[in-house]
Design a protein around this nucleic acid. Structure first.
Lengths: 338, 338
DNA sequence: GGCTGGCACTCGTATGCGGTGAGTGCCAGG
DNA sequence: CCTGGCACTCACCGCATACGAGTGCCAGCC
């Protein structure tokens, strides 16, 4: 077990390194933080911290930098989430209040997060699986062609074109629309399959094929589109990484382009609260030198999607976590209102 | 006027420089292209080309690289758009055919373009202004709350929530829906304002306010959403720029984040065919060392939106132009089918 | 007049070499 | 257990040198 002072030394190292981006030495530490001991003592502490794997030296005669393990300890034990200032909170609220629809909410959230944290922001669209159906609309586009429009309680809209096996009259369509909505409106997506199972039985034989087609398309849409969309922004902030980094930035950009990777990344974070994944804790190789701070957000009590930021492991964890948490909270409010 | 051989020298310089990313000297030129003359002669030609501003030397004792003006001449006079190979065409078709809806079409197009050109791809969503209305749907969400859903001929869907001044019955809603659609379905967006102008007159006095509100929201949607969306991809390709300049990449990333900038960029290209903007021809400062190749695409004869790629001025113009043109053509086909 | 070979010149890059200093580990003493 | 002192390491900086690709120019040739 590390003594209290050694933990303080670790905290100081993390803070200084995050600030200066340069390895921090024992002398500088004692000067900038009043630890009440001499550099020599700090050196001993540092040697101990290095033995335990919390810090490392890039070169023999350089200062120390925190390792992933060091950041982990810092985040778990030493850091307190830094709440935003009042003006910041107001700015967030004002900015998000201006959104006109779901796309806009997500887009604004991304910009906001990227600006607040000066890092790459990732915002997942509210998931379909956990949403409820607000309305299903069927539109006749041609005699044997129907457009299915699905509207969720979070304001998301999905549409799908359907080729019917047989022509389908306007009255039948209206009938189907009415019956469908009376069954599924307000229900959770996961319940829909059960609810519509016996629907074709109420129709004429000639229409039954089409009804079946429409239903299966609806179910497909519910399931397939579970594959969730997301939006990212602030990639320009990657250039702040370090002066060395054309090599570091590339795999990160590549990873960010793969929505699948990002979705998995957000999905892995099971913690109901905020999750911080540091460096090699991220499964994806390209993100081994980055940390991901993510948190769920949602209109009600339950989280419907996640958002977060991706930045260098050497990031301002307290500030970032504060910003992420605050933004998630406000986005939840906005969604609840609409 | 430049002699034929000098033009050939310029062409050779562009080709070599694009290939090697290094300034090209007179000796190397004569070795790799059989110009039929000696290095000394080429040197004279190069001096002339430099006087005219087509090429420049980064340092006194280095080879030459093309200037923006040089690339311009190359693109206008010396390059032929390189058609794609048959397998490439098949791959495009197959990949795009798999798309399930408009979002998917755009997403796949971006990926495709980025992969084919190994550069940053930008695809604009089919514009609202030039589209026609396929259907307007009105859904009652609450007694005095209506959702407006607008579907375009390109499959794009826009929705908008409306708070009505007074409760609005289902029958009135159905009535409005029917009258609205009979007037605007199949018409161009630009014509809609005229077409609905006198619509409120046919309604009861108590409903007229609501009808008016719905109509003005519709018109707003038509106008405001003219502000068009777009999707970008392949930003990781920016890292191929050169090993030298992480400084160049930053402003480009920043510019790419600003949708407004990109939209203006695509919008400026008035040429009905393909447009190439080279280096400083781009108004935006951050893109002064990049070239933009863009072209319109559309389902019918008319272009409904644009797509293109952004890359270093030192790009493979014939190949890029070929890829952009081919992709635009196929996307147009896909849109026409759906 | 235009092309060619030769030649001197420029200048950016690579290489080698001390000097400097931040930072360390260790040790003896308080 | 902390502290001051001390020798040691090694990345970084500046500088001086060598190298060589590439140029411009000129005299000669077709």
């Amino acid at each position: 077990m590390l003594s209290e002072r050694r933990l303080q030394v670790l905290r100081a190292i993390v803070q200084d390194y995050v600030g200066t981006e340069e390895p921090v030495g024992s002398k500088a530490l004692t000067e900038r933080h009043n630890l009440g001991v001499s550099p020599a003592t700090v050196r001993n502490d540092m040697a101990a911290l290095e033995d335990e794997g919390y810090i490392a030296q890039p070169h023999t005669s350089a200062g120390r930098i925190p390792t992933d393990k060091g950041y982990r300890l810092f985040v778990d034990k030493l850091a307190e989430v830094k709440p935003l200032t009042a003006p910041e909170r107001r700015a967030i609220q004002n900015f998000l209040d201006g959104a006109v629809d779901l796309d806009d909410v997500v887009a604004r959230t991304v910009r906001l997060l990227a600006q607040l944290t000066r890092q790459v922001a990732v915002v997942q669209y509210p998931s379909l699986t956990r949403s409820t159906v607000r309305h299903v609309e069927l539109l006749s586009m041609a005699p044997a062609r129907v457009m299915l429009v699905l509207i969720t309680d979070t304001g998301r809209v999905e549409q799908r074109m359907i080729d019917c096996p047989a022509p389908f009259g306007e009255t039948s369509l209206a009938d189907l629309r009415a019956r469908l909505n009376s069954r599924v409106a307000g229900r959770r997506f996961t319940d829909v399959p059960q609810l519509v199972q016996d629907l074709p039985e109420g129709f004429e034989a000639e229409d039954r094929g089409t009804v079946q087609t429409v239903l299966s398309t609806l179910l497909e849409t519910l399931v397939e589109r579970t594959e969730e969309r997301l939006m990212i922004g602030g990639t320009a902030n990657l250039t702040r990484f370090g002066h060395d980094f054309p090599l570091t930035i590339r795999p990160v950009l590549e990873a960010l382009e793969e929505q699948v990777v990002l979705l998995k990344l957000l999905g892995e974070a099971k913690d109901p609260g905020m999750t911080v994944r540091i460096g090699h804790e991220n499964a994806h190789e390209g993100l081994n030198s980055t940390s991901v701070v993510s948190v769920g957000y949602g209109s009600g009590g339950e989280a419907v999607a996640k958002l977060g930021v991706v930045g260098p492991t050497r990031m301002d964890y307290p500030g970032t976590m504060g910003a992420v948490r605050a933004v998630a909270r406000y986005v939840g409010q906005i969604l609840a209102e609409s």
